[in-house]
Nucleic acid binder design. Sequence first.
DNA 1: GCCCGGTTTTGGTTTGGACCAATTGTGCGA
DNA 2: TCGCACAATTGGTCCAAACCAAAACCGGGC
Lengths: 236, 236
Amino acid sequence: MPNSALPPTTSLPGATVKYVIETLSTRIVTQEYATEERLPSERQLAQELGVARNTVREALDQLEARGMIRRRAGSGSFVTYDPDGQGEALSPVAAETGPLQLQVMRGIIEPEMVRLAIVNMSPRQIEALSVVLSKMEAVQTDAAAFVRLEEEFHRLLAEGTGNPLVIACYNLVLDARRQSFRTAMYRRHLTPTRIAIYQQGYNGLFNAIAARDIEEASEFMKLALIEDQRLLLQEG
Amino acid sequence: MPNSALPPTTSLPGATVKYVIETLSTRIVTQEYATEERLPSERQLAQELGVARNTVREALDQLEARGMIRRRAGSGSFVTYDPDGQGEALSPVAAETGPLQLQVMRGIIEPEMVRLAIVNMSPRQIEALSVVLSKMEAVQTDAAAFVRLEEEFHRLLAEGTGNPLVIACYNLVLDARRQSFRTAMYRRHLTPTRIAIYQQGYNGLFNAIAARDIEEASEFMKLALIEDQRLLLQEG
DNA sequence: GCCCGGTTTTGGTTTGGACCAATTGTGCGA
DNA sequence: TCGCACAATTGGTCCAAACCAAAACCGGGC
């Protein structure tokens, strides 16, 4: 049962392309479609997701623009995204942002971002969030995978605000976060025990979001930040 | 002979969108469609050029990406290209950020930014701030000049945080703000009376900063935002 | 004169279909 | 076995149509 996402039966207008993008990008980030692998043909994807081929193409256009896939006429579409992305060029800001500075900015934007997301997210977007959440809950020991899923979760939240400025700003934050994990490597402290703690936190966060409980969700977001802070301080 | 492009009679495949782009961009550059002017509706263009509306939209997508036009649903597509080249290329995010969305993001980041700035600013940076402030207080009626000085004031505050991430994010905010003033033109409501009100606010803000009074400064920042909001709403 | 509600216009999204061009795969014949 | 032509597959382009939502427009009623 590879199709864990919502079938677009309720078919909210104007959300179909985003739904396809979120579905596919999640699959890529979670390596359901592995790096270098060929993903299903456009016609197949269209049928599986229950949308027109044009819609799939629109989504693939954007994924290609993000550099996640590469397309060759007559051949297929291939995943270029590399989770261990040693090669990608990070923004210069990310390079000069320290872990603490990152934490400060996250503390500013994330609690408010959740508030906005709760107000603006469509049921379909929440469903996409739940898909990522369930994948996070399946993680036992793979810290790297968990970190990637966390990023996807947060990215979906940012998208959920529907505010281009917020999304753009938060992309900078995510860049810095990726850089931070790469250099500081404090995910070594992400033991199975800690992963379990985080899973509990994200679960609570999601439930608050699904219940549209703004204060509760914002509070969970702050708790996660504090937990991150603790992790950060443990590292010489 | 204004139409120098191929008529699509021979209809080479894969050349139709380019043909439309070239035709329209030529008309825009030659000011056949003047700056700020509304160009024909997509349906009209499709009929005139003998192509499908989809094709016209594809072409308009790219012209919009180039920053030559701006589209508003229900209203039309307008030429933003300025032959006198004053229009520096704005970031794409700025273009798609609405005034209200800008205000939301400012509400998130500015009050916290002031807090950080107060803690981190050096006496020299505060001195720089006071210089800008005095220039602002000298303004009587020149709304444009006042807006530019406001931007400088805020930029100094962002710099004052010493946090590269915050600075980078706030640069996006400032881009959007500049764009907002360019399109919405709500600085027309910036009458001398209102300028005086703002001057008073900035004066209080600066004094709070100089006194390192965090709560007071953050409060002044919020007040300025509320005042902006009021200005925004007055614009029918 | 002004406001308010319905109507029209305009861009935005999605569908489904047709055809083209590049690539891959296959099977037949030399 | 090798090679070439044909067929199938895949992405690329374009078209026609339908419906939605935001904006603008317009006319009657106060």
